[in-house]
Design a protein around this nucleic acid. Structure first.
Lengths: 203, 203
DNA sequence: AATTTACGAAACGGGACCGTTGCGTATCGG
DNA sequence: CCGATACGCAACGGTCCCGTTTCGTAAATT
């Protein structure tokens, strides 16, 4: 029994190629980021894009959904660190992270999956919510609840509704806002309008 | 030459069945409302659902996109009448119409198309924006601009941003809000929070 | 009645993918 | 070197859908 450094026995024969594995994942993410729906993704297209035989894919994943789930799992979700000083600053930090992500491939993957594949792929949706949605939701809720506690926000604020307002606004901008990148000060403007309200200050 | 009452010459032979035409459109809308993407829609599925031969479809539309465009065109977009008294009331009326639509078939069609098929079907998207998006966008903008003019809203309000906040919030609720119907007072609560802002009133 | 067109159903050849298998080659442990 | 496993590639039979054609029937005009 040959013991590897990791303690796992190394099976005989040629080891699986990490390069191929990465290429498969990358090809999958690329196709999703380009707007290909999960239902339209074909193993053959992924294999071709990755420069890999179909066999190499089927040897690792038994079906398309498993592959997509694993591919999405590789998308790190680096939540920005929050200064924790003012609620306004933390909200801007969170919303600006959303803005920045709408421009890169990871963000496009997340957005496309969230938008279109929500139904009809329950396992995928579950994994996706767990990795991409929940962490942000939690962070946002904590900032808002802290604001209510410290008096920076109205004591009667409906935190859940506030989350919908902030997230929904950024999502709307990503999807139907101006073409190309979103303006750099977008997050700040959104937070300021939502904090201050649209009505004029009482006289 | 036989002239019909409408003034159009009636061609010889059996006339096309209006019933079949309606059934085709209905089947198409049903499938879209159920979450079927335009790319996955198949003529055969529509024909089967409509109880119609494929021939009957191809005789009327030369391709799937034309059919979907016509089907979407039958979705009336009844903008609610606006009282025009207070900006708050008009905003609630508009947002509540969005809320109500998220529950019916028409609304689900609009939402699904907007979410997933935005890219890759430019003609469809164009028609869709023209019929479903623009009228609402215009109405919302007019209410907000009137509010700025009358002083009911802050004079420095970014109207475009305000539109994104209001629309995005409702869209977010439709897509990721509580399962089932949205609460009846949702529109009112959204408008009040957005009008007043989340920060506490200045002392 | 004769003609013309539409109808639903079925079948066609063609193409895209499916998931599997066989092939010759490459890369590992022993 | 040898056995074992992975690799890319090509081919397979199968399914779904395409867009077209054919067929027998139905519904209109003349």
């Amino acid at each position: 029994m040959t013991i590897q450094g990791t303690g796992t026995a190394r099976p005989a024969g040629r080891p699986r190629s990490e390069k191929a594995e990465k290429a498969i994942i990358e090809a999958t993410l690329d196709l999703i980021a380009e707007g290909m729906g999960v239902s339209e993704l074909s193993i053959e297209a992924i294999a071709s894009r990755a420069g890999v035989g179909k066999t190499t894919i089927y040897r690792r994943w038994s079906n398309k959904e498993d592959l997509v789930v694993d591919a999405l799992a590789t998308l790190k979700a680096p939540l920005p660190p929050l200064a924790g000083v003012s609620v306004r600053d933390d909200l801007i930090t969170l919303l600006d992270a959303m803005r920045a992500e709408s421009g890169n491939r990871r963000g496009r993957c997340v957005m496309n999956i969230a938008m279109s594949e929500a139904d009809r792929h329950p396992r995928l949706l579950e994994r996706f919510v767990e990795r991409a949605v929940e962490p942000r939701r939690r962070a946002l809720r904590e900032v808002l609840e802290r604001g209510v506690a410290t008096g920076e926000l109205r004591p009667d604020l409906d935190v859940t509704l506030a989350m919908a307002i902030l997230s929904g606004t950024m999502m709307w901008q990503s999807k139907w806002g101006p073409a190309g990148d979103l303006p750099e000060d977008l997050a700040e403007r959104v937070v300021d309008v939502v904090l201050a309200g649209m009505a004029p200050p009482a006289p």
